[in-house]
């Protein structure tokens, strides 16, 4: 503990060096310790997963199918499935989220009850447990929309009224919507008022101003939001548990009405329901490593872009 504190002091401690006050030192030390514990745990997790996963982690692992009852081979279908999932999800969520953000920053007046309700809804969406989205996907997309489409257009033949990649992606898009809205909103707010005024003073209408000046200026914000949403969507499993993820598929999904494999779901299945958990351990760790690298690097990119936006705003 003492050692930890001293180390931390060298690293982070900047002011309060007079330190005749023991009580104060103790309090500050406790807060430092908390920071240290969190960061240490984070790196321990990262370290162990990298260490355990590196053995199996290779290009071949990423680019081949699982074999021998998923006890050997790679994770290609899970990777591709995740990829399709986040793409379809982004196609649905990005326009939706961007437009909502435009409403909130450009159209909503300050005291509008409607805007307050939209804000509240967005924040609620952000805290609804992800499993609830899964239930909603099942109840709304599959049982209501999908089954409805089947009855209306397929003569009752079961095609859309069952879990598939489209419904899973749409379910995921609801979950990631707040992420996009918040990012885009933040970016829109950094567009200086002077630019909007310049455009309006030239006789541009509100929508022309948004289209020509505001939106081009917030492309990077939309990108940040998309990347963060993709990072989130790639890692979430609960919403797709019963809306489309499959245990094992011998082929890649050929249409949106097919089921798909997914990295996160693969990890869950392999670690809890595999026939031989011990034997597949390296595969599990390597899959986790792939997923973690994916989400963390996406996040890192988003953080970099975001800090650039913030710097520009200053």
């Amino acid at each position: 503990m003492d050692k930890v504190n001293i180390e931390l002091e060298n690293q982070f401690f900047s002011s309060e060096k007079k330190g005749s006050d023991i009580k104060g030192k103790f309090f500050v030390g406790v807060t430092q310790l908390a920071v240290f514990i969190i960061i240490a745990v984070l790196f321990i997790i990262l370290g162990i997963i990298v260490y355990q996963g590196r053995a199996k982690f290779s290009w071949e692992f990423i680019s081949s199918f699982p074999t021998n009852g998923m006890t050997e081979g790679g994770i290609l279908p899970a990777l591709i499935g995740t990829f399709i999932l986040v793409i379809v999800m982004s196609i649905a969520a990005v326009p939706f989220g961007t437009i909502t953000a435009i409403y909130l920053t450009e159209y909503a007046s300050e005291n509008s009850k409607f805007a307050a309700a939209v804000r509240f809804s967005v924040r609620t969406l952000a805290v609804v447990p992800s499993i609830i989205f899964g239930l909603f996907g099942l109840g709304f997309f599959i049982q209501f929309l999908g089954a409805g489409v089947d009855t209306a257009f397929n003569g009752g033949e079961l095609r859309w009224g069952q879990p598939n990649i489209l419904w899973a992606s749409l379910t995921m898009s609801l979950l990631t919507l707040p992420v996009i809205i918040v990012s885009v909103e933040e970016a829109l707010k950094t567009i200086p008022r002077e630019l909007r005024e310049a455009s309006l003073a030239l006789g541009a209408t509100k929508w022309q101003t948004i289209k020509q000046v505001v939106l081009p200026g917030s492309v990077s914000g939309i990108m940040t939001g998309t990347i963060l949403a993709v990072s989130r969507g790639a890692g979430e499993v609960a919403p797709i548990l019963f809306t489309g993820a499959a245990y094992y598929l011998a082929t890649l999904p050929g249409s949106l009405s097919d089921q798909f494999m997914n990295l996160g779901y693969h990890i869950y299945i392999m670690s809890t329901q595999s026939s031989d958990v011990e034997k597949t351990m390296p595969i599990q760790f390597a899959t986790t490593l792939v997923l973690l690298l994916l989400t963390l690097s996406l996040n890192l990119v988003a953080v970099v872009i975001r800090s650039r936006i913030r710097r520009r705003a200053k």
Binding site: L42, I45, I48, I49, S130, S231, A234, G235, E236, V237, A238, G264, Y265, I267, Y268, S271, Q284, T288, L291, L292, T295, L296, L298, N299
Partner: peptide
């Protein structure tokens, strides 16, 4: 940014 499935796995 750590997916919960990763934390769960860990």
């Amino acid at each position: 940014a750590f997916p919960s499935v990763v934390i769960g796995f860990f």
